[in-house]
Design a protein around this nucleic acid. Sequence first.
DNA 1: CGGTACATTGACGGGTCTCAACTCGAGTGG
DNA 2: CCACTCGAGTTGAGACCCGTCAATGTACCG
Lengths: 241, 241
Amino acid sequence: MPATSPAREKCRTCRLHSLCLPRELPQGDTSELARIVQTRRPMKRGTYVLQAGGHFQSIFAVRTGSVKTSTLLPSGDEHISGFHLPGEILGLDAIASRSHPSTSVTLETSHVCEIPFTELEHLSERIPALQRQLLRIMSRELSTEQSTTHLLARRSAEQRLAMVLLDFSQRFANRGLSARHFRLPMSRSDLANYLGLAPETMSRTFRRLEARGLLSIAGKAVVILDPIALAELVDGASGGS
Amino acid sequence: MPATSPAREKCRTCRLHSLCLPRELPQGDTSELARIVQTRRPMKRGTYVLQAGGHFQSIFAVRTGSVKTSTLLPSGDEHISGFHLPGEILGLDAIASRSHPSTSVTLETSHVCEIPFTELEHLSERIPALQRQLLRIMSRELSTEQSTTHLLARRSAEQRLAMVLLDFSQRFANRGLSARHFRLPMSRSDLANYLGLAPETMSRTFRRLEARGLLSIAGKAVVILDPIALAELVDGASGGS
DNA sequence: CGGTACATTGACGGGTCTCAACTCGAGTGG
DNA sequence: CCACTCGAGTTGAGACCCGTCAATGTACCG
């Protein structure tokens, strides 16, 4: 048995190590971080990780499974602002207001790590590399959000769908999974909602891209057949067949 | 003459003090911050504050005037991701990649403060309150971006316009200006671009809201006549008549 | 006063939403 | 083993909003 306790190992031995908070942290600092991280029992599909309006206390890291984040609009319907895969952080949008502006729910059975924010702040005062990583993560989220905004402003249904599929492809690849075959964790309506489309339009658009041989879809299973053509579609190049 | 030099005063005496980085910082720390802040000569309309692709070195704070931030899409056209008023910070989306993902240009003659990021990081290691404020600012931007995303997904031209006008109204009010009468700093096409609409649609939508007595517009001068009706419009409440 | 870029207005076409019916698959119980 | 139920997903028809194209009007600046 090594000198470090199992609890101190959990971040270092986590396979998401290099995507999550401990990225580029020396081993000793990673152990310190692991001490304040609370792992929890797996959450069943549909469990709330955090709820809109709730007091901000911790940020969360997805360890396995997937999570969707949404906001309830005053008009009564929800808007889904993002889907989170293992290694991604939830709750960073609550730091300023000290209360969560959005709600996060598991899309399947998932493990989520809780990181009490006050302790994280104190720790990052002593570990500048941790502070830098925190800023980097938030900065990355900012540019991702901006891309999403570009996507929704003025792009066709085909472009939106192509773009979100390539996005997932990339993110799965970053996690060591296939970039060409994967399973979408969310329902069609959730995906449509996220893209600002009607579910019917999604369905038709899937069909059209399938008919053109760009991809193949069966239920939630996606196969990317022509990533280059999809990328050209996103870029707005009117690549006529 | 006080013991502190004029350079050390500049943040403390800045009227945007409470909106900007020094917010809630004790006076001594504000002076330390002021030492690394570089004020510059006023920039004429159309001057680049930072350029996409450029190496990330500093973040910037708008002191007077206004700035627009945009991205050049691969398809060739630009998408405007935001407008910045005095007290707001530019360049935070470049921390992760160390290079600017977007371009920022002044919309009118403006003063901009430059804050070298490495020095800011070092300073915030010594001043935890500064680090907290930095995180707060980024967190606030994250939730703002998310609202923008909600706005663009699935909202009508009327709702988008109403929402951006109320947003500006609020931000002007926060700066001690009138929430009902103000001047939009950007062109119609820029506003249309930001909202993901055609300029023609913007124009027609302005007309329609004017005809209903919700606002009055002459060139860039806006008068909000019925803020409540505008807010109901944004919320999607189909407020009769 | 002339030029240029920006803003408005109108007519038209197309993409997407809405409403509705239908299909399909999973889970359940007979 | 099969019928039933329920919800998600799909498919079709029609309407509407908004983008495009083109012309006109207007403000700004030399």
